[in-house]
Design a protein around this nucleic acid. Structure first.
Lengths: 343, 343
DNA sequence: GAGGTGCGTGGAAACGGTTACAGTTTTGTA
DNA sequence: TACAAAACTGTAACCGTTTCCACGCACCTC
């Protein structure tokens, strides 16, 4: 196993200069006579030469890589998002470096550092909510940041692609209200995330507009990780007056919450009407099939990648954009009028 | 937007030479006085300096990037695999470049090309089965290839990490046989993949050993994409003598198959006993909860990354390894004796 | 006090590409 | 035939690290 050939070896073998070889390598970066080119190609073939990517990257600050920083690929929502992002990125010829933060601010900080070292041109991320300094630094270094799904208000320099969270929560709540529910519970993500906050706002707004008092015990902001969904459901069902409707606005906790409901003697939708955020492959396989708020994942991915690559290539220079795409309410079988509807 | 700081900037800021900064960066590569070290650390902090990966790679011939080439992240199995791979990779300080092939040989070829000449030292992949030439070329170029989940017999140079597919299928079949089933159907992936072939082999072996004739109409090898699972179920149920037991060995088609079963009037497990490959987050949420073959995803990820990074760093130089990890049969509620068990 | 033996440090040469610029040929045109 | 323009090729300077080697210095040992 001998040392790999370098561009200089090729040049010597072909009897030309390194510049010529480089031009042959990078088609169109300069003129090369046909005969010379074939000599070079031969030499490359003979030596089995392959240009070294590191050397290339070092030299040219070509931003051909974007970072994709998601919290957790085990969550089907993010998994499908990653799938679509990878797809869109490929179509644009850019590479995707994948990083997961597991909802951990410390890991997130590490990831940002890693991206700086890899000289990524842009980052698509679902931020945990912290690390303001890290993000700021990243942006200062000229790395374009696109927040997807969530956002950070304190970072107006970043683009944002998300669904209308307030509106979606409002729609779901509205649906339950119209069925006659009055005691409606809401399980959201942490209020440190924009999704958590906005969805709760939407929920409250719908309730208030309907003239229904919001019982704060019916709003549970729980972490994304762990079994908090199950705990929240347990606590809600144990209340003296348990809710007749439940909206789970924390995608990552839907499974856990459902588990608890399945274990209990509560019947859906007879005893409890249910709407969950995000349409998973299995939401129509369980019994009863779940009414959901469906986030348009391909749109989120499309816009994110579009923004990221656009900014990277300098095509987009205007001020940061906030792109809202509409989530869709899909009615299935998990909602019904409350058991003892008021007269 | 200022330029990223270089090691020279740090050296100047700290009032030392670049050599010292480098030694601080690479702990243990040379002596540094404690006081000097802290000056350097301060400077790094102040400047927000991050060493540039490309420059590092150029100098020392180590790679810090591995390619992760999966077919489809919308499949929860691969999504969770990606999650674990990202995790294991991070623990080893290597970056992951994500590529998806959508089970398309052409896209796979493109992906391999993209990886060639990029700075990936190793690739973890679930191959579609074709592109022998591409893979061979990649390996020749010194990129270490680890096939995970599936393998390609014609490429003995690649490492393989997979479950015992024959054995797992055998176990599942065995379970149904013991319950008294004789007409057992098997839906597998394409026979062009090792998983498809091996699982069918295991299925046949168990049947043969039990002295049960295998009805070829009960074996459906269907594509991973599309709605082929549903079609296969439809065909099976339409048979004059439909099966009383069904094993879905095509993870990607489980959802589609279940859908069709749910639509039909067939009751699980009363009319049809069901075992599916791979334990998803929702297999115990549906009714009845599904008996599954659980693939130990974290083990698959661990070994893959271990092999990939080990080879990359030159720690592993022995001949290619085939690592088999055991899948586990998890019994839930989707199996019962056949409706008219033979006396 | 001469001669090791370490430690701590800095200078400068790699590593393998790209590319600006200058130099040499070939071609086109008056 | 002369001379400018175009086409091609070569030299050398980067890019940001790591690392080899030399050097100064304090300390220890005969």
């Amino acid at each position: 196993m001998r040392k790999p050939a370098t561009i200089r070896d090729v040049a010597r073998e072909a009897g030309v200069s390194v510049a010529v070889v480089s031009r042959v390598l990078n088609e169109g970066s300069g003129p090369v006579a046909p005969h010379t080119r074939s000599k070079v190609v031969d030499a490359i073939e003979r030596l089995g030469y392959r240009p070294r990517a590191a050397a290339r990257e070092l030299q040219q600050r070509s931003f051909t890589t974007i970072g994709l920083m998601l919290t957790d690929l085990a969550n089907p929502f993010f998994a499908r998002l990653a799938d679509r992002v990878a797809w869109e990125a490929r179509a644009r010829g850019v590479q995707v470096v994948l990083l997961t933060t597991q909802e951990d601010a410390h890991l997130e900080a590490e990831s940002v550092d890693a991206l700086i070292g890899r000289s990524a041109g842009a980052v698509i991320a679902t931020p945990t909510g912290g690390n303001l300094d890290k993000w700021t630094r990243l942006i200062e270094l000229g790395v374009h940041v696109v927040f997807v799904d969530r956002e950070i208000d304190e970072l107006p320099e970043a683009d944002v692609v998300a669904i209308g969270n307030e509106r979606s929560a409002e729609t779901a709540t509205q649906h339950l209200l119209e069925l006659g529910h009055r005691r409606i519970a809401f399980i959201s993500g942490p209020l440190s995330t924009s999704t958590g906050r906005d969805r709760v706002i939407g929920f409250r707004r719908a309730m208030t507009r309907a003239g229904v008092d919001v019982d704060d015990r019916l709003i549970c902001a729980v972490p994304f990780r762990g079994d908090s969904g199950s705990d929240a459901v347990g606590a809600l069902l144990d209340l003296p007056a348990p809710p007749t409707g439940l909206i789970v606005g924390n995608t990552a906790q839907v499974r856990s919450a459902l588990h608890r409901i399945k274990q209990s003697s509560i019947a859906v939708p007879d005893d409890l009407s249910l709407i969950v955020f995000d349409d998973n492959p299995w939401t129509d396989l369980v019994s009863p099939s779940l009414s959901v708020i469906r986030q348009p994942i391909d749109m989120l991915a499309l816009h994110s990648v579009e923004l990221a690559t656009g900014r990277m290539k300098g095509a987009l220079t205007e001020r940061p954009r906030h792109i809202r795409v509409n989530a869709e309410f899909i009615q299935r079988s998990s909602c019904a009028p409350p058991p003892a509807a008021p007269a």
